[in-house]
């Protein structure tokens, strides 16, 4: 534990900044074969050039990091940080099994993609959209500006400090994280917040009202009025759940988009919505 509490020395701080700046191009050449591998190996260069002075060793390390890689781009520095700590160990300890480096990377990229996607795509972005959108809908330029700021301030902070945390914890990160359940807690907490926000946004943004009118004894009764008294916005909820169900059944997003357009046009032609 004492190692982790220890402050980074001057050179290590410089390394952290280099990792931060090298991490941005991760997806520039995203492709099917190796996904983000090219960007990741470039992100490892600050560590590789520091720890390996021999060109053959550098080449070996670069090649090692050209293995297929994929995670949420905003949280990649944490994995780079961990891999950096491992490369440091590998460069100093000839008995160190270098296969461990890739195994740890593979072990990390999945969970980090899960946490990163729900944190950045599912939570931070949704909050930024929710706030930016309410302004943009009134035609305010502050909408898009606020959207970018609300997303990117946490993005930059996490990108930098993620690297520091990854490096400090080094090989031990997953052990410790698993033992104290930090990963599960972050994941669980982010899911709860994310689901509630998505629920609220579904309610505020999906629009579906019935224009059916029943004729009861000469009196006209609009169905929507009754729905509003029992469960306002029931129809948007049901429709969203239905879409979710279709996706769950394996239907393609583009197919249900087309279905939705047909439902919208058809329903409005028939005069029921």
């Amino acid at each position: 534990m004492s190692d982790e509490k220890k402050k980074l020395n001057k050179d290590e701080k410089k390394l952290m900044r280099e990792i931060f700046w090298s991490s941005f191009m991760l997806e520039a050449s995203y492709n099917y074969e190796r996904q983000q591998a090219l960007g990741f190996s470039i992100g490892m260069w600050p560590a590789i050039k520091r720890y390996y002075k021999n060109k053959n060793d550098q080449a070996e390390a670069l090649e090692r990091h050209m293995n297929i890689f994929n995670t949420t781009p905003h949280v990649v520095t944490t994995i780079t940080g961990v891999a950096t700590a491992l490369e440091k160990e590998a460069s100093q300890n000839p008995k160190f099994d270098k296969n461990i480096i890739n195994n740890v990377k593979i072990g990390l990229m999945g969970p980090f993609a899960g946490i990163g996607d729900s944190l950045f795509w599912g939570t931070i972005r949704i909050i930024a959209v929710g706030i930016g959108l309410s302004l943009a809908q009134q035609g305010s330029i502050l909408g898009p500006i606020l959207f970018l700021l609300l997303f990117n301030v946490p993005h930059m902070v996490i990108r930098y400090y993620g690297g520091v945390v990854g490096y400090k914890f080094g090989t031990k990160i997953m052990d410790q994280a698993n033992n104290s359940g930090i990963m599960q807690k972050i994941s669980k907490g982010a899911t709860i917040v994310g689901l509630m926000v998505i629920g609220a946004m579904t309610a505020s943004m999906v629009k579906l009202e019935s224009s059916l009118v029943f004729n009861v004894g000469g009196e006209k009764i609009p169905m929507q009025d009754y729905l509003n008294q029992i469960f306002p916005l029931l129809l948007p909820l049901l429709y969203t759940i239905f879409m979710y169900y279709l996706l769950k059944k394996g239907m393609k997003p583009t197919a249900i988009l087309l279905i939705t357009i047909v439902v919208g046009i058809g329903g409005s032609l028939l005069g029921i919505i």
Partner: peptide, 25 residues
């Protein structure tokens, strides 16, 4: 009429987006 229908569809389409977000969560 088609434009009106598209407007209704436009109100519904976010449901697909939210369903996609919900899918993994």
């Amino acid at each position: 009429t088609i434009m009106n229908g598209l407007e209704v569809a436009g109100g519904l389409l976010p449901a697909v987006g939210f369903a996609l977000l919900l899918l993994p969560m």
